[in-house]
Amino acid sequence: MRVERATRHITADPERVFRAFTDPDLFVAWIPPEGMTGRLEEFDPERGYRMVLRYENPPEGGGKATLDTDVSVVRRVLVDPPRTLVEEVDFPSGDPSFAGTMRMTWTFQPEVTGTLVTIEATNAPAGIDQDVHVGAMISSLAQLARAVEHGTVG
């Protein structure tokens, strides 16, 4: 089974970090990786969301949904604040290499000087390049750290 992980220490307590996942305006501001913008079409902090991600510079071959977009349909299957968040992610696409459900598990481990945030992605569709995916997770974690550490999260 394909598994990808990324971690980052964030200098804020787990409760503060977890809030960045439940406020839709804040969430859409940090979750898109560098080079993308996001728009939420639906958002329920307990049940999930539907997000359209737009590439600033689309990749060769285009995005998963259109030439310049990806769409993520996310079900939150476990919301255990401020410790764990488990999501099941589908990518609506005409390309069968993006079929299947990916599981994203976010954990928030308290540390003396903040929180260790870990993302683990399992069962990513074959059409998602592993190195690009890990890079996107690292980018989102960096943006989460900036949002939480610099006061955009109350």
Rank of each mutant, 00 (worst) to 15 (best):
L78D: 14
M1E: 09
V71I: 15
A136C: 07
T122C: 10
W30I: 12
D129A: 07
T122H: 11
G63M: 07
M104K: 06
P92T: 11
Q143D: 13
E56C: 03
H150Q: 14
R39S: 09
E15Q: 12
Q109N: 13
T107H: 06
A147I: 01
P81C: 10
D25V: 06
T69H: 06
L40C: 09
A145L: 05
T113H: 08
V79A: 01
R8N: 13
E15H: 07
A65Q: 12
M137A: 14
L26S: 03
G62T: 06
E46I: 00
G61N: 10
V73G: 07
D80A: 14
G114S: 02
D13L: 00
S139K: 03
P59A: 07
M1N: 09
V86C: 04
N57L: 08
E34R: 08
D95T: 00
M104E: 15
V153M: 05
M51L: 14
D68V: 01
L116S: 07
T107Y: 14
V117M: 14
T115F: 10
V79Q: 01
A20W: 05
V117S: 15
T118N: 12
A121H: 03
R83D: 15
G151F: 00
V77S: 11
H9I: 01
P125L: 04
L40W: 05
E88Q: 14
G154S: 15
D23I: 00
E111I: 04
A136S: 15
E15F: 01
K64Q: 15
Q130H: 06
M1S: 10
G35C: 08
N57H: 12
P45L: 03
R76M: 15
A145H: 06
E4R: 03
V79F: 01
F18W: 10
L53Q: 11
W30A: 05
P82L: 12
M102R: 05
N57G: 10
L40I: 13
P58T: 03
A65R: 15
L67M: 11
E4H: 08
E88A: 05
P32H: 03
V148P: 14
T66V: 06
R47L: 09
V86Q: 04
L78H: 10
A136H: 09
M36D: 11
G62A: 04
T113I: 01
G38I: 12
P96T: 02
T107L: 13
G48L: 04
P92A: 09
V153E: 11
G100E: 05
I10H: 11
